[in-house]
Simulated assay, not measured.
Amino acid sequence: MLTLYIINTCDTCRKARKALEERGIPFNTHDLRKDGLSASLLEHILERVPLLEAINKRSKTWRDLPQEAKDNLDATSARALLLEHPTLLKRPLLEVDHETMQVGYRDGDYDQLSG
């Protein structure tokens, strides 16, 4: 079954959720704010999504970080930031299978999926 990683208040996440529902595609939802982001879940995601692609540098959370944290970003500090601030993770993330995770959502992205 598909898993959609979201933040419930995110408009794009709501659109992605609606797109799956309209297609009758069953899926589980994991709210990164409410359900949390554990170190093991983060590693699970990062095995499928490159670290730099996983960080949402357009988010308010990113803009609010101290400049020093952004300037000195490496793999270790990025993981620590993502665990401390799950809203830094790009979303929605749709885990299609054990190998594939789709980052973000635009209209038509889920057209190839079937229920």
Results as ranks from 00 to 15, higher is better:
D64P: 01
S114E: 13
V49C: 12
A19N: 01
P50K: 12
L2G: 04
A69L: 14
R91S: 00
P26I: 02
H98Q: 13
E95C: 04
H44D: 15
L20H: 08
A16W: 07
Y5T: 06
E84C: 03
I7S: 06
D111L: 01
R58D: 09
M101C: 04
Q112F: 13
T87I: 10
Q112D: 12
K57Y: 01
N56K: 08
L37H: 07
E84M: 09
N56G: 12
N28T: 13
H98D: 13
E21N: 12
T76V: 15
N56E: 03
K60V: 10
I7Y: 00
T29N: 04
L20I: 03
A78S: 12
L81H: 11
R48N: 08
Q67A: 13
R23W: 02
E68S: 15
L83K: 00
E99G: 12
T29V: 14
I25Y: 07
E53I: 12
L32Q: 08
R17F: 01
E22D: 15
M1E: 05
D107A: 10
R58M: 03
D111M: 02
G104K: 06
A78F: 02
I45Q: 07
L37S: 05
R106C: 07
L51M: 07
R63K: 09
D35T: 00
Q67R: 09
R91A: 01
S77G: 06
D109Y: 07
R14Q: 11
G108R: 13
E43W: 10
G36F: 11
E53T: 15
I55P: 04
E84Q: 08
S114M: 09
L94G: 08
H30T: 12
A80P: 04
R58E: 07
H30N: 06
E84K: 13
I6Q: 04
H44T: 07
L32Y: 07
R58N: 12
D111E: 10
L4C: 11
L73Q: 05
L73D: 05
Y105Q: 04
H44P: 06
R79D: 02
L2E: 03
E43T: 15
A39S: 14
D71V: 08
Y110S: 05
E99R: 15
R58L: 00
R17Y: 09
K18W: 14
S40E: 14
L113V: 07
F27R: 05
A80W: 03
H98N: 13
Y5S: 06
L83Y: 07
D111Q: 08
A39Q: 14
D31N: 06
